[in-house]
Simulated assay, not measured.
Amino acid sequence: MRGRAEAWLHRGRSLGPGLLVATMVAMAAAFLGSHYKGSMLLFALLLGMALGFLGDDARCRPGIQFAGSSVLRIGVALLGLRLTVEHVAALGWGTVLALAVAVLATMACALLLARVLGIHRSFGVLAGGATAICGASAALAIASVLPRREGLDRDTTLTVVGVTTLSTLAMILYPVLSTWLGFDATTAGRFIGATIHDVAQVVGAGYALSEAAGDAATITKLMRVALLLPTLLLVALLVRSREAGLARRAPLLPWFAVAFGLLVLVNSSGLVPATAQALAGTASQAALVVAIAAVGLKTSLREVATLGWRPVLLLVLVTVWLAALAAAYLRFGA
C-alpha cells in the first residue's frame, strides 16, 4: 500500500508542472473567450503556441503530454451526457441517415483532396472528421486514435486553427445564406446545425435567427456529435487494417469512445439530473480547453508555417463541400 502511494506521489510530481502550465493557459483562454466573446479553444491553442518553449522543458513535458492525451479523452467521453436517444427521434431517421452519409462523403472528399494536393492522408482524416462532426473536439479525438507519426501534432494544430476560424466565419455568413436560399426558421436551423463545425458557433448562429432556428440547429448539431463514436470506430478499423503491428497493441475502440456511448445510454434513461448534466458539460469543456492548450504547447509555430497553402485550401474546400451537400439535401431532398 505504501509503495503504491509513493508511486502515485511520484507520478503527481512528474505530471504537476506541465498540468499546471496547461491549466493556467486554459484559464487565460477562458477569460479571453468570455470577455471578447470568442472561441476559448482557439485562444487556448494560440496562447499555448506562444508559450511553446515550455513544451520543450523536461519538467513540463510529461504533464503537457498527459493533458493532451488523457485529459482530452475524459473531455470527449463526457460529451456523451449532452446527448440522448430522443435527439435521434426528434430529428427523424431520414435526417440522421442524411447526416451519416454527409459525414462519410465529407471524409471521402477530404481524403481525395489530400491525395490530389499531395498532403499526408492523416491530415485528410483530421480535416474531414473535424469539418463533418464537431470541429476542434473531433480533430483532437480522431488524432488520438491515429498512428503516431512525426508531424501529427502539427497537423492537428493546423486543423483546429482552420476549422475554428472557418466556423466563426460561417456563424456570420450561414444565417444570411440560409435566408437567401429561402429556408424557413426550422430548415435554416437544420442547415446551420448540419454545417457549422463547433457547437458554440452553431448555437450562436441559430438563435441569432430565431428560437425555432436555434432549437433545430442545436438538435441537428448534437446528432453530428453523436456520429463521433462510429467515426472513431471506422478510423480505428482502418488503422488496424493498415498497421498490423499497431493492431496487436491498440484496442479496436478506445475506452473513451466506449464511455461516450455508455454515457449517451445512461443520459437517455432520464436518471441523470439536469444539474449533473450541466456539471458534466462544464467539465467536458474545461478538459477540452486544457487539452488543446497542451496541443498548442507542444506545437512549433515554425513547423506550422512550413505547411504552406495546400492544407488551408483543403479545409476551405471541404467546408464548402459540406455546405453544398446540406443545402442541396434541404432544398431538394428533405
Rank of each mutant, 00 (worst) to 15 (best):
R2C: 00
A7H: 08
W8Q: 05
L9V: 00
L9A: 12
R11K: 09
S14T: 06
S14C: 00
M24G: 03
H35K: 11
K37F: 08
L46E: 03
L51N: 08
L54W: 13
L54F: 14
L54G: 00
G63Y: 14
I64D: 09
F66W: 13
F66H: 12
A67V: 04
G68I: 09
S69P: 00
V71N: 09
L78C: 06
G80M: 04
G80Y: 03
G80S: 08
T84N: 12
T84H: 12
V85H: 13
V88A: 15
A90H: 12
L91R: 08
L91E: 10
A100G: 13
A102E: 12
A105E: 10
L111F: 09
R115S: 12
R115F: 04
V116G: 02
I119N: 02
S122C: 02
A127V: 14
A132L: 06
A132Y: 10
I133H: 05
A136G: 00
A136T: 08
S137L: 05
A139F: 07
E150F: 01
D153H: 04
T157F: 03
T157A: 15
T159H: 10
V163S: 03
S167T: 06
L169R: 04
L173Y: 07
T179I: 01
W180D: 00
F183L: 03
R190L: 09
R190S: 04
I196R: 12
V202T: 08
A208H: 15
A212K: 11
D215R: 15
A217D: 08
T220N: 09
T220S: 15
K221V: 02
L222W: 10
L222F: 14
M223T: 10
L232I: 15
L233A: 15
A236M: 15
S241Q: 14
S241F: 13
A244N: 03
A250T: 09
W255S: 11
F256E: 07
A257V: 07
A257P: 00
V258H: 09
L263S: 08
L263E: 11
S268N: 13
S269M: 15
L271Q: 14
A276C: 11
A283C: 10
S284Q: 10
A287N: 08
L288P: 01
V289E: 04
V289F: 06
A293Q: 05
A294L: 11
V304T: 04
T306R: 07
L307I: 01
W309Q: 02
R310F: 03
P311E: 06
V312D: 01
L317Q: 09
V318S: 11
V318H: 14
V320K: 10
L322M: 12
L322P: 00
A324H: 07
A328G: 01
Y329M: 03
